[in-house]
Write a protein that binds this DNA or RNA. Structure first.
Lengths: 238, 238
DNA sequence: CGGAAAATATGACTTTTATCATATCCCCTG
DNA sequence: CAGGGGATATGATAAAAGTCATATTTTCCG
Protein backbone atom coordinates (compact mmCIF):
# COMPACT_ATOMS: atom_id res chain seq x y z
CA UNK A 1 0.00 0.00 0.00
CA UNK A 2 1.52 3.27 -1.12
CA UNK A 3 1.99 5.95 1.46
CA UNK A 4 -0.11 9.00 0.72
CA UNK A 5 1.43 12.26 1.79
CA UNK A 6 -0.48 15.36 2.66
CA UNK A 7 0.58 18.71 3.95
CA UNK A 8 -0.71 21.29 6.32
CA UNK A 9 1.21 24.03 8.09
CA UNK A 10 1.47 23.51 11.86
CA UNK A 11 0.27 27.09 12.35
CA UNK A 12 -2.93 26.22 10.50
CA UNK A 13 -3.44 22.85 12.14
CA UNK A 14 -6.87 22.48 13.76
CA UNK A 15 -5.38 20.51 16.60
CA UNK A 16 -2.49 22.80 17.49
CA UNK A 17 -4.56 24.19 20.37
CA UNK A 18 -4.90 20.69 21.88
CA UNK A 19 -1.26 19.86 21.38
CA UNK A 20 1.90 20.25 23.43
CA UNK A 21 3.22 22.33 20.54
CA UNK A 22 0.67 24.98 21.47
CA UNK A 23 2.50 27.98 22.91
CA UNK A 24 5.70 27.25 21.04
CA UNK A 25 7.26 30.41 19.65
CA UNK A 26 6.89 30.93 15.87
CA UNK A 27 10.54 30.21 15.22
CA UNK A 28 10.48 26.82 16.95
CA UNK A 29 7.13 25.89 15.47
CA UNK A 30 8.42 26.65 11.99
CA UNK A 31 11.45 24.48 12.66
CA UNK A 32 9.09 21.61 13.48
CA UNK A 33 6.92 22.48 10.51
CA UNK A 34 9.80 22.57 8.03
CA UNK A 35 11.10 19.16 8.97
CA UNK A 36 7.89 17.21 9.31
CA UNK A 37 6.46 14.65 6.92
CA UNK A 38 2.71 14.10 6.94
CA UNK A 39 1.23 10.79 5.91
CA UNK A 40 -2.28 9.40 5.56
CA UNK A 41 -2.79 5.92 6.92
CA UNK A 42 -5.62 3.46 6.35
CA UNK A 43 -7.29 1.43 9.08
CA UNK A 44 -5.14 -1.54 9.97
CA UNK A 45 -1.80 0.00 8.94
CA UNK A 46 1.00 0.06 11.49
CA UNK A 47 2.78 3.22 12.57
CA UNK A 48 5.57 1.57 14.54
CA UNK A 49 6.45 -1.84 15.91
CA UNK A 50 7.45 -3.17 19.31
CA UNK A 51 11.18 -3.86 19.40
CA UNK A 52 12.22 -1.24 16.85
CA UNK A 53 14.08 1.98 17.50
CA UNK A 54 12.26 5.32 17.38
CA UNK A 55 13.55 7.80 14.82
CA UNK A 56 11.18 10.60 15.62
CA UNK A 57 7.89 11.71 17.04
CA UNK A 58 4.42 11.18 15.58
CA UNK A 59 1.84 13.91 15.95
CA UNK A 60 -1.78 13.01 15.29
CA UNK A 61 -3.70 15.24 12.91
CA UNK A 62 -6.70 12.98 12.31
CA UNK A 63 -8.12 9.53 13.04
CA UNK A 64 -7.43 7.14 15.91
CA UNK A 65 -4.49 4.89 16.66
CA UNK A 66 -4.23 2.11 19.23
CA UNK A 67 -0.95 1.50 21.04
CA UNK A 68 -0.74 -2.01 22.42
CA UNK A 69 1.45 -4.83 23.64
CA UNK A 70 1.10 -8.46 22.64
CA UNK A 71 1.60 -11.15 25.23
CA UNK A 72 3.03 -14.60 24.64
CA UNK A 73 -0.32 -16.10 23.64
CA UNK A 74 -0.86 -13.23 21.23
CA UNK A 75 -3.44 -11.44 23.36
CA UNK A 76 -3.38 -7.68 23.03
CA UNK A 77 -3.39 -5.14 25.79
CA UNK A 78 -4.19 -1.62 24.63
CA UNK A 79 -2.19 0.95 26.54
CA UNK A 80 -3.85 3.98 25.03
CA UNK A 81 -5.71 5.26 22.03
CA UNK A 82 -4.28 8.36 20.40
CA UNK A 83 -6.58 11.01 18.99
CA UNK A 84 -5.89 14.23 17.03
CA UNK A 85 -3.56 16.54 18.91
CA UNK A 86 -1.83 13.67 20.71
CA UNK A 87 1.83 12.77 20.49
CA UNK A 88 2.57 9.19 19.61
CA UNK A 89 5.66 7.20 20.43
CA UNK A 90 7.22 9.87 22.63
CA UNK A 91 7.91 7.57 25.58
CA UNK A 92 10.49 5.34 23.88
CA UNK A 93 11.90 8.35 22.03
CA UNK A 94 12.51 10.30 25.24
CA UNK A 95 13.82 7.35 27.24
CA UNK A 96 16.03 6.40 24.29
CA UNK A 97 14.84 2.82 24.28
CA UNK A 98 13.21 0.55 21.73
CA UNK A 99 9.47 0.76 21.28
CA UNK A 100 7.78 -1.49 23.84
CA UNK A 101 4.47 -1.40 22.04
CA UNK A 102 3.01 -1.44 18.56
CA UNK A 103 0.82 1.28 17.06
CA UNK A 104 -1.95 0.40 14.61
CA UNK A 105 -4.53 2.62 12.95
CA UNK A 106 -8.08 2.12 14.23
CA UNK A 107 -9.70 4.81 12.09
CA UNK A 108 -8.12 6.25 8.93
CA UNK A 109 -5.51 8.66 10.22
CA UNK A 110 -3.39 11.62 9.25
CA UNK A 111 -0.14 11.68 11.14
CA UNK A 112 2.86 14.01 10.98
CA UNK A 113 6.32 12.63 11.63
CA UNK A 114 8.91 14.90 13.21
CA UNK A 115 12.49 13.62 13.00
CA UNK A 116 14.18 13.02 16.33
CA UNK A 117 16.84 15.67 15.67
CA UNK A 118 14.39 18.50 15.05
CA UNK A 119 12.29 17.60 18.06
CA UNK A 120 15.28 17.31 20.37
CA UNK A 121 16.68 20.58 19.07
CA UNK A 122 13.52 22.45 20.00
CA UNK A 123 13.37 20.60 23.29
CA UNK A 124 16.97 21.49 24.08
CA UNK A 125 16.79 25.19 23.34
CA UNK A 126 13.37 25.73 24.86
CA UNK A 127 13.29 24.86 28.57
CA UNK A 128 9.68 25.98 28.93
CA UNK A 129 8.65 23.48 26.27
CA UNK A 130 10.70 20.76 27.91
CA UNK A 131 9.01 21.62 31.19
CA UNK A 132 5.58 21.23 29.60
CA UNK A 133 6.62 17.88 28.16
CA UNK A 134 7.77 16.69 31.57
CA UNK A 135 4.52 17.84 33.08
CA UNK A 136 2.47 16.01 30.45
CA UNK A 137 4.51 12.82 30.79
CA UNK A 138 4.15 12.85 34.58
CA UNK A 139 0.43 13.48 34.27
CA UNK A 140 0.19 10.49 31.93
CA UNK A 141 2.09 8.45 34.47
CA UNK A 142 -0.50 9.31 37.10
CA UNK A 143 -3.20 7.93 34.81
CA UNK A 144 -1.22 4.74 34.46
CA UNK A 145 -0.87 4.38 38.23
CA UNK A 146 -4.62 4.73 38.45
CA UNK A 147 -5.07 2.04 35.82
CA UNK A 148 -2.68 -0.28 37.62
CA UNK A 149 -4.63 -0.08 40.86
CA UNK A 150 -7.88 -0.52 38.95
CA UNK A 151 -6.60 -3.59 37.16
CA UNK A 152 -5.31 -5.06 40.40
CA UNK A 153 -8.42 -4.72 42.49
CA UNK A 154 -11.52 -4.15 40.38
CA UNK A 155 -13.75 -6.78 38.76
CA UNK A 156 -14.14 -6.96 34.99
CA UNK A 157 -17.64 -5.52 35.28
CA UNK A 158 -16.34 -2.52 37.20
CA UNK A 159 -13.47 -2.00 34.79
CA UNK A 160 -15.71 -2.21 31.73
CA UNK A 161 -18.12 0.33 33.20
CA UNK A 162 -15.24 2.63 34.16
CA UNK A 163 -13.69 2.36 30.71
CA UNK A 164 -16.96 3.10 28.94
CA UNK A 165 -17.23 6.28 30.99
CA UNK A 166 -13.63 7.15 30.24
CA UNK A 167 -14.16 6.56 26.52
CA UNK A 168 -17.25 8.75 26.61
CA UNK A 169 -15.27 11.55 28.25
CA UNK A 170 -12.27 11.22 25.96
CA UNK A 171 -13.87 10.44 22.62
CA UNK A 172 -17.37 11.83 23.12
CA UNK A 173 -18.54 14.60 20.80
CA UNK A 174 -17.85 18.19 21.73
CA UNK A 175 -20.34 20.00 23.92
CA UNK A 176 -23.08 18.93 26.28
CA UNK A 177 -25.08 16.00 24.98
CA UNK A 178 -21.89 14.07 24.34
CA UNK A 179 -23.09 10.60 25.17
CA UNK A 180 -21.95 8.81 22.02
CA UNK A 181 -18.50 7.23 22.08
CA UNK A 182 -17.02 8.47 18.81
CA UNK A 183 -14.87 5.46 18.27
CA UNK A 184 -15.89 2.31 16.43
CA UNK A 185 -14.26 -0.27 18.66
CA UNK A 186 -14.61 -4.00 18.05
CA UNK A 187 -15.58 -6.09 21.07
CA UNK A 188 -12.13 -7.57 20.83
CA UNK A 189 -10.46 -4.15 21.10
CA UNK A 190 -12.70 -3.22 23.99
CA UNK A 191 -11.64 -6.45 25.70
CA UNK A 192 -8.00 -5.47 25.11
CA UNK A 193 -8.63 -2.13 26.79
CA UNK A 194 -10.38 -3.64 29.80
CA UNK A 195 -7.98 -6.55 30.07
CA UNK A 196 -10.37 -9.45 29.71
CA UNK A 197 -11.74 -11.99 27.19
CA UNK A 198 -13.84 -10.91 24.22
CA UNK A 199 -16.77 -13.14 25.26
CA UNK A 200 -16.84 -11.57 28.70
CA UNK A 201 -17.10 -8.09 27.20
CA UNK A 202 -19.92 -9.21 24.91
CA UNK A 203 -21.86 -10.69 27.81
CA UNK A 204 -21.44 -7.66 30.03
CA UNK A 205 -22.33 -5.23 27.24
CA UNK A 206 -25.55 -7.18 26.67
CA UNK A 207 -26.33 -6.86 30.36
CA UNK A 208 -25.59 -3.15 30.39
CA UNK A 209 -27.84 -2.80 27.35
CA UNK A 210 -30.68 -4.79 28.95
CA UNK A 211 -30.37 -2.63 32.03
CA UNK A 212 -30.70 0.50 29.89
CA UNK A 213 -27.23 1.80 30.70
CA UNK A 214 -26.01 1.84 27.11
CA UNK A 215 -27.30 1.47 23.56
CA UNK A 216 -25.63 0.32 20.35
CA UNK A 217 -25.66 2.69 17.37
CA UNK A 218 -24.02 0.90 14.48
CA UNK A 219 -20.52 0.07 15.65
CA UNK A 220 -20.64 2.76 18.30
CA UNK A 221 -21.86 2.77 21.86
CA UNK A 222 -24.03 5.44 23.44
CA UNK A 223 -23.96 5.93 27.19
CA UNK A 224 -27.59 6.32 28.25
CA UNK A 225 -27.20 6.42 32.01
CA UNK A 226 -23.78 7.64 33.08
CA UNK A 227 -24.80 7.72 36.71
CA UNK A 228 -25.83 4.07 36.88
CA UNK A 229 -22.75 3.16 34.90
CA UNK A 230 -20.62 4.98 37.47
CA UNK A 231 -22.37 2.93 40.14
CA UNK A 232 -21.44 -0.25 38.25
CA UNK A 233 -17.88 1.02 38.12
CA UNK A 234 -17.97 1.40 41.89
CA UNK A 235 -17.15 5.07 41.52
CA UNK A 236 -20.25 6.08 43.44
CA UNK A 237 -21.09 4.36 46.68
CA UNK A 238 -24.82 5.03 46.88
CA UNK B 1 7.11 10.64 67.47
CA UNK B 2 9.77 13.32 67.19
CA UNK B 3 11.48 13.72 63.88
CA UNK B 4 15.14 12.92 64.08
CA UNK B 5 17.33 14.96 61.78
CA UNK B 6 20.65 13.84 60.43
CA UNK B 7 23.02 15.43 58.00
CA UNK B 8 25.30 14.32 55.28
CA UNK B 9 26.72 16.34 52.42
CA UNK B 10 25.37 15.30 49.02
CA UNK B 11 28.94 15.10 47.73
CA UNK B 12 29.72 12.50 50.38
CA UNK B 13 26.47 10.55 49.97
CA UNK B 14 27.05 6.87 49.28
CA UNK B 15 24.12 6.80 46.92
CA UNK B 16 24.97 9.83 44.80
CA UNK B 17 26.37 7.51 42.15
CA UNK B 18 23.00 5.71 41.87
CA UNK B 19 21.02 8.93 41.83
CA UNK B 20 19.83 11.31 39.13
CA UNK B 21 21.83 13.98 40.93
CA UNK B 22 24.95 12.17 39.80
CA UNK B 23 26.71 14.28 37.19
CA UNK B 24 25.29 17.53 38.47
CA UNK B 25 27.89 20.29 38.49
CA UNK B 26 29.29 21.23 41.93
CA UNK B 27 27.43 24.51 42.01
CA UNK B 28 24.02 22.95 41.42
CA UNK B 29 24.71 20.07 43.78
CA UNK B 30 25.66 22.49 46.50
CA UNK B 31 22.44 24.41 45.91
CA UNK B 32 20.53 21.20 46.49
CA UNK B 33 22.73 20.36 49.45
CA UNK B 34 22.29 23.74 51.13
CA UNK B 35 18.53 23.64 51.01
CA UNK B 36 17.85 20.05 51.95
CA UNK B 37 16.56 18.71 55.25
CA UNK B 38 17.41 15.14 56.16
CA UNK B 39 15.18 13.13 58.44
CA UNK B 40 15.27 9.63 59.91
CA UNK B 41 12.00 7.73 59.80
CA UNK B 42 10.95 4.61 61.66
CA UNK B 43 9.14 1.70 60.08
CA UNK B 44 5.46 2.52 59.68
CA UNK B 45 5.85 6.29 59.48
CA UNK B 46 4.34 8.10 56.52
CA UNK B 47 6.32 10.33 54.19
CA UNK B 48 3.39 11.79 52.27
CA UNK B 49 -0.32 11.17 51.85
CA UNK B 50 -2.59 10.68 48.87
CA UNK B 51 -4.60 13.83 48.20
CA UNK B 52 -2.06 16.32 49.57
CA UNK B 53 0.06 18.76 47.63
CA UNK B 54 3.77 18.13 47.11
CA UNK B 55 6.09 20.79 48.48
CA UNK B 56 9.33 19.21 47.39
CA UNK B 57 11.23 16.14 46.40
CA UNK B 58 12.32 13.27 48.65
CA UNK B 59 15.64 11.60 48.02
CA UNK B 60 16.29 8.24 49.65
CA UNK B 61 19.50 7.87 51.59
CA UNK B 62 18.70 4.66 53.45
CA UNK B 63 15.91 2.16 54.12
CA UNK B 64 12.90 1.21 52.03
CA UNK B 65 9.62 3.00 51.40
CA UNK B 66 6.47 1.65 49.78
CA UNK B 67 4.33 3.91 47.60
CA UNK B 68 0.77 2.66 47.33
CA UNK B 69 -2.83 3.45 46.60
CA UNK B 70 -5.80 2.35 48.69
CA UNK B 71 -8.97 1.24 46.98
CA UNK B 72 -12.50 1.72 48.28
CA UNK B 73 -12.42 -1.48 50.34
CA UNK B 74 -9.12 -0.41 51.86
CA UNK B 75 -7.00 -2.84 49.87
CA UNK B 76 -3.53 -1.59 49.03
CA UNK B 77 -1.82 -1.68 45.69
CA UNK B 78 1.90 -1.01 45.88
CA UNK B 79 3.11 0.99 42.89
CA UNK B 80 6.78 0.83 43.76
CA UNK B 81 9.26 0.40 46.55
CA UNK B 82 11.89 3.10 46.83
CA UNK B 83 15.44 2.22 47.82
CA UNK B 84 18.50 4.36 48.54
CA UNK B 85 19.37 6.60 45.61
CA UNK B 86 15.75 6.79 44.42
CA UNK B 87 13.66 9.92 44.15
CA UNK B 88 10.33 9.79 45.89
CA UNK B 89 7.22 11.79 45.07
CA UNK B 90 8.60 13.32 41.90
CA UNK B 91 5.64 12.39 39.69
CA UNK B 92 3.06 14.59 41.40
CA UNK B 93 5.66 17.31 41.93
CA UNK B 94 6.54 17.48 38.23
CA UNK B 95 2.96 17.21 36.99
CA UNK B 96 1.91 19.83 39.57
CA UNK B 97 -0.91 17.67 40.91
CA UNK B 98 -1.83 16.29 44.30
CA UNK B 99 -0.18 13.09 45.42
CA UNK B 100 -2.15 10.14 44.09
CA UNK B 101 -0.49 7.69 46.41
CA UNK B 102 0.73 7.38 49.98
CA UNK B 103 4.32 6.65 51.01
CA UNK B 104 5.04 4.59 54.13
CA UNK B 105 8.35 3.40 55.52
CA UNK B 106 8.94 -0.36 55.24
CA UNK B 107 12.42 -0.40 56.75
CA UNK B 108 13.82 2.39 58.91
CA UNK B 109 14.77 5.10 56.45
CA UNK B 110 16.91 8.18 56.01
CA UNK B 111 15.36 10.58 53.58
CA UNK B 112 16.42 14.04 52.40
CA UNK B 113 13.78 16.59 51.49
CA UNK B 114 14.57 19.14 48.80
CA UNK B 115 12.14 22.07 48.62
CA UNK B 116 10.29 22.44 45.36
CA UNK B 117 11.86 25.84 44.62
CA UNK B 118 15.44 24.63 44.87
CA UNK B 119 14.75 21.55 42.78
CA UNK B 120 12.92 23.50 40.09
CA UNK B 121 15.66 26.11 40.03
CA UNK B 122 18.30 23.52 39.26
CA UNK B 123 15.98 21.85 36.78
CA UNK B 124 15.34 25.15 35.02
CA UNK B 125 18.92 26.31 34.65
CA UNK B 126 20.31 22.91 33.78
CA UNK B 127 18.79 21.45 30.59
CA UNK B 128 21.04 18.42 30.69
CA UNK B 129 19.70 17.54 34.13
CA UNK B 130 16.13 18.12 32.98
CA UNK B 131 16.86 15.86 30.02
CA UNK B 132 18.07 13.09 32.35
CA UNK B 133 14.96 13.49 34.49
CA UNK B 134 12.73 13.18 31.41
CA UNK B 135 14.64 10.11 30.35
CA UNK B 136 14.27 8.50 33.78
CA UNK B 137 10.57 9.32 33.99
CA UNK B 138 9.94 7.86 30.54
CA UNK B 139 11.91 4.76 31.42
CA UNK B 140 9.79 4.36 34.53
CA UNK B 141 6.71 4.74 32.38
CA UNK B 142 7.88 1.84 30.23
CA UNK B 143 8.07 -0.32 33.33
CA UNK B 144 4.54 0.64 34.21
CA UNK B 145 3.30 -0.27 30.72
CA UNK B 146 4.92 -3.63 31.21
CA UNK B 147 3.19 -4.04 34.55
CA UNK B 148 -0.17 -3.09 33.07
CA UNK B 149 0.05 -5.77 30.39
CA UNK B 150 1.23 -8.29 32.98
CA UNK B 151 -1.64 -7.49 35.30
CA UNK B 152 -4.13 -7.72 32.44
CA UNK B 153 -3.13 -11.07 31.06
CA UNK B 154 -1.04 -13.09 33.48
CA UNK B 155 -2.28 -15.39 36.24
CA UNK B 156 -1.51 -14.70 39.87
CA UNK B 157 1.01 -17.55 39.89
CA UNK B 158 2.86 -16.03 36.94
CA UNK B 159 2.79 -12.56 38.44
CA UNK B 160 4.07 -13.75 41.81
CA UNK B 161 6.94 -15.61 40.16
CA UNK B 162 7.77 -12.60 37.98
CA UNK B 163 7.68 -10.24 40.96
CA UNK B 164 9.94 -12.48 43.05
CA UNK B 165 12.48 -12.40 40.24
CA UNK B 166 12.11 -8.63 39.95
CA UNK B 167 12.57 -8.20 43.71
CA UNK B 168 15.65 -10.39 43.59
CA UNK B 169 17.14 -8.25 40.82
CA UNK B 170 16.22 -4.95 42.42
CA UNK B 171 16.81 -5.65 46.10
CA UNK B 172 19.27 -8.55 45.93
CA UNK B 173 22.70 -8.07 47.49
CA UNK B 174 25.49 -6.66 45.39
CA UNK B 175 27.56 -9.03 43.31
CA UNK B 176 27.12 -12.54 42.01
CA UNK B 177 25.47 -14.84 44.53
CA UNK B 178 22.66 -12.33 45.04
CA UNK B 179 19.78 -14.71 45.54
CA UNK B 180 18.40 -13.27 48.79
CA UNK B 181 15.69 -10.62 48.52
CA UNK B 182 16.98 -7.95 50.90
CA UNK B 183 13.58 -6.74 51.87
CA UNK B 184 11.49 -8.06 54.76
CA UNK B 185 8.08 -8.01 53.12
CA UNK B 186 4.97 -9.26 54.87
CA UNK B 187 2.77 -11.65 52.90
CA UNK B 188 0.23 -8.88 52.85
CA UNK B 189 2.65 -6.42 51.23
CA UNK B 190 3.70 -9.03 48.71
CA UNK B 191 0.02 -9.54 47.87
CA UNK B 192 -0.29 -5.77 47.37
CA UNK B 193 2.61 -5.84 44.94
CA UNK B 194 1.24 -8.77 42.96
CA UNK B 195 -2.33 -7.53 43.09
CA UNK B 196 -4.03 -10.45 44.79
CA UNK B 197 -5.28 -11.70 48.17
CA UNK B 198 -2.90 -12.43 51.04
CA UNK B 199 -4.08 -16.05 51.32
CA UNK B 200 -3.36 -16.66 47.66
CA UNK B 201 0.21 -15.41 48.07
CA UNK B 202 0.70 -17.63 51.11
CA UNK B 203 -0.53 -20.69 49.25
CA UNK B 204 1.58 -20.05 46.17
CA UNK B 205 4.71 -19.31 48.22
CA UNK B 206 4.24 -22.66 50.00
CA UNK B 207 4.03 -24.37 46.63
CA UNK B 208 7.12 -22.60 45.33
CA UNK B 209 8.91 -23.64 48.50
CA UNK B 210 7.81 -27.29 48.20
CA UNK B 211 9.01 -27.27 44.60
CA UNK B 212 12.42 -26.01 45.72
CA UNK B 213 12.12 -22.69 43.87
CA UNK B 214 12.48 -20.51 46.96
CA UNK B 215 13.37 -20.77 50.64
CA UNK B 216 12.41 -18.65 53.64
CA UNK B 217 15.21 -17.12 55.72
CA UNK B 218 13.62 -15.32 58.62
CA UNK B 219 11.35 -12.73 57.09
CA UNK B 220 13.23 -12.82 53.83
CA UNK B 221 12.93 -14.95 50.74
CA UNK B 222 15.80 -16.59 48.90
CA UNK B 223 15.43 -17.47 45.25
CA UNK B 224 16.86 -20.97 44.88
CA UNK B 225 16.02 -21.70 41.26
CA UNK B 226 15.64 -18.54 39.21
CA UNK B 227 15.32 -20.52 36.01
CA UNK B 228 12.37 -22.59 37.17
CA UNK B 229 10.83 -19.47 38.66
CA UNK B 230 11.15 -17.77 35.29
CA UNK B 231 9.36 -20.72 33.77
CA UNK B 232 6.55 -20.29 36.30
CA UNK B 233 6.43 -16.64 35.33
CA UNK B 234 6.01 -17.73 31.73
CA UNK B 235 9.12 -15.76 30.81
CA UNK B 236 10.76 -18.82 29.33
CA UNK B 237 8.80 -21.03 26.97
CA UNK B 238 10.70 -24.30 27.31
C1' DC C 1 -25.31 -9.88 -5.66
C1' DG C 2 -23.55 -13.96 -3.34
C1' DG C 3 -20.57 -16.38 -0.65
C1' DA C 4 -16.73 -16.47 2.50
C1' DA C 5 -14.78 -14.62 6.35
C1' DA C 6 -14.97 -12.01 10.31
C1' DA C 7 -17.46 -10.29 14.19
C1' DT C 8 -20.93 -10.95 17.54
C1' DA C 9 -23.65 -13.76 20.44
C1' DT C 10 -24.86 -17.55 23.57
C1' DG C 11 -24.37 -21.89 26.14
C1' DA C 12 -21.82 -25.33 28.83
C1' DC C 13 -18.14 -26.20 31.49
C1' DT C 14 -13.70 -25.60 33.99
C1' DT C 15 -10.31 -23.15 36.29
C1' DT C 16 -8.77 -19.65 38.97
C1' DT C 17 -9.04 -16.85 42.69
C1' DA C 18 -11.49 -14.45 46.40
C1' DT C 19 -13.68 -14.92 50.69
C1' DC C 20 -14.68 -16.65 55.13
C1' DA C 21 -13.55 -19.53 58.92
C1' DT C 22 -10.37 -21.30 61.88
C1' DA C 23 -5.97 -22.96 63.48
C1' DT C 24 -1.19 -22.30 64.54
C1' DC C 25 2.96 -19.87 65.04
C1' DC C 26 5.92 -16.23 66.41
C1' DC C 27 7.34 -12.26 68.51
C1' DC C 28 6.83 -8.47 71.59
C1' DT C 29 6.05 -6.60 75.95
C1' DG C 30 4.83 -6.34 80.65
C1' DC D 1 7.88 -16.40 81.33
C1' DA D 2 3.04 -15.75 80.17
C1' DG D 3 -0.15 -14.07 77.42
C1' DG D 4 -1.90 -11.44 73.68
C1' DG D 5 -1.89 -9.73 69.11
C1' DG D 6 -0.46 -9.96 64.68
C1' DA D 7 1.21 -12.70 61.01
C1' DT D 8 1.11 -17.01 58.70
C1' DA D 9 -1.11 -21.13 57.35
C1' DT D 10 -4.81 -24.25 55.73
C1' DG D 11 -9.47 -25.80 54.57
C1' DA D 12 -14.06 -25.23 52.59
C1' DT D 13 -16.84 -22.82 49.60
C1' DA D 14 -18.51 -19.49 46.34
C1' DA D 15 -18.02 -16.30 42.79
C1' DA D 16 -15.84 -14.59 38.84
C1' DA D 17 -14.03 -15.12 34.61
C1' DG D 18 -11.67 -17.91 31.05
C1' DT D 19 -12.11 -21.40 27.50
C1' DC D 20 -14.20 -24.08 24.06
C1' DA D 21 -17.97 -25.06 21.11
C1' DT D 22 -21.30 -23.51 18.16
C1' DA D 23 -24.81 -20.39 16.29
C1' DT D 24 -26.06 -16.23 14.11
C1' DT D 25 -25.26 -11.89 12.16
C1' DT D 26 -22.63 -8.57 9.67
C1' DT D 27 -19.20 -7.12 6.59
C1' DC D 28 -16.22 -7.39 2.91
C1' DC D 29 -14.81 -8.28 -1.66
C1' DG D 30 -14.75 -10.44 -6.12
Amino acid sequence: MAKVEFNIACTLCDHLKDSLFNGLNPEDLSRINNHKTCIQYKKGQNIFYEGTRPTGLYCMNGGKVKVYKNNVQGKEFIIYIAKPGDFLGYRALLSEEFYQATATVLEDAKICFIPKESFFEVLQKNPAFMRRVVQAVCHEMGIMEEKLAELAHKSVRERLAANLLMLKETYGMEGEGSTLIELALSREDLASIVGTATETVIRLLSEFKSDGLIAFEGKKIRVLDARKLAKQADLIIA
